[in-house]
Simulated assay, not measured.
Amino acid sequence: MTNRYSGNNDVINPERLINQPTVAPADGTIGQAALAPAASPFFSIRVINAAVTAAQAVVWDASQGYQLDNSYVMPLTLSIVGGTNHYQFLLNDLSHVGKKIDVIQLTCTAGTAALQFQRAIQVYDCAPGSMPSLIKTLHPSMGFSEQQFQANIVTFPADLILTNRTALVLTIEGSTTLSMSFYQVAEIGRKN
């Protein structure tokens, strides 16, 4: 084994080690623990409203706290589809692992983008023993700049933690497909 300090190949005799361990330490690739797979820094969904009128959507409410407390039923004309993974898989994963999100990017149907981006996204947290609480309001239109060429894309800071108790409540314009991309900084509570 190579001594990392001297660079010499030294043979370690376990009898000479303190308390005489039965397993000699290993250095290098054999001695390294298996690494957990890295978290994907990005995931996305699409919210599609096939109706002509605007509809309210509830996204990421994995524990359904917001939906149950507010008797919310998703309209039949509204659908949520996973972009990077199936939406149900993303919900199931969110039930076990929190996600720290720093940036959200929205891409919208060209004809309704200006109206859609003016609508706020409300972030609710649902805790046992209390009604859902509004913890933050995100304003997508804050991501626009005067130099922006594509008016149907907006990127804005979010600074939020998604857990199984977090619900994003937003209104989707009629005949609109809204793609929501979430840029993840870290996972919270991942067990190997």
Rank of each mutant, 00 (worst) to 15 (best):
residue 11 V to R: 11
residue 12 I to N: 09
residue 12 I to V: 15
residue 13 N to I: 15
residue 14 P to H: 07
residue 15 E to T: 14
residue 15 E to L: 13
residue 15 E to F: 13
residue 17 L to F: 05
residue 19 N to A: 04
residue 21 P to V: 11
residue 22 T to K: 14
residue 24 A to F: 06
residue 24 A to N: 15
residue 25 P to T: 12
residue 25 P to H: 11
residue 25 P to A: 08
residue 27 D to Q: 12
residue 27 D to H: 13
residue 28 G to R: 08
residue 29 T to K: 15
residue 30 I to T: 11
residue 33 A to T: 08
residue 34 A to H: 11
residue 36 A to L: 13
residue 37 P to H: 10
residue 38 A to V: 12
residue 40 S to N: 09
residue 42 F to R: 04
residue 44 S to T: 03
residue 46 R to T: 00
residue 47 V to K: 11
residue 47 V to P: 10
residue 48 I to K: 15
residue 48 I to D: 08
residue 49 N to W: 09
residue 50 A to H: 13
residue 51 A to P: 00
residue 55 A to D: 05
residue 57 A to V: 00
residue 58 V to C: 03
residue 60 W to Y: 12
residue 60 W to Q: 01
residue 61 D to Y: 00
residue 61 D to H: 07
residue 61 D to F: 01
residue 62 A to V: 09
residue 63 S to I: 02
residue 63 S to Q: 08
residue 64 Q to C: 02
residue 65 G to F: 01
residue 65 G to H: 04
residue 65 G to E: 01
residue 69 D to R: 01
residue 70 N to H: 10
residue 71 S to I: 14
residue 71 S to G: 10
residue 73 V to Y: 06
residue 75 P to L: 03
residue 77 T to I: 01
residue 80 I to N: 05
residue 80 I to E: 00
residue 81 V to G: 02
residue 82 G to R: 06
residue 82 G to S: 09
residue 83 G to L: 02
residue 85 N to R: 09
residue 85 N to E: 06
residue 85 N to K: 05
residue 86 H to K: 15
residue 86 H to G: 14
residue 86 H to T: 12
residue 86 H to W: 07
residue 87 Y to W: 12
residue 88 Q to M: 09
residue 89 F to A: 14
residue 89 F to G: 06
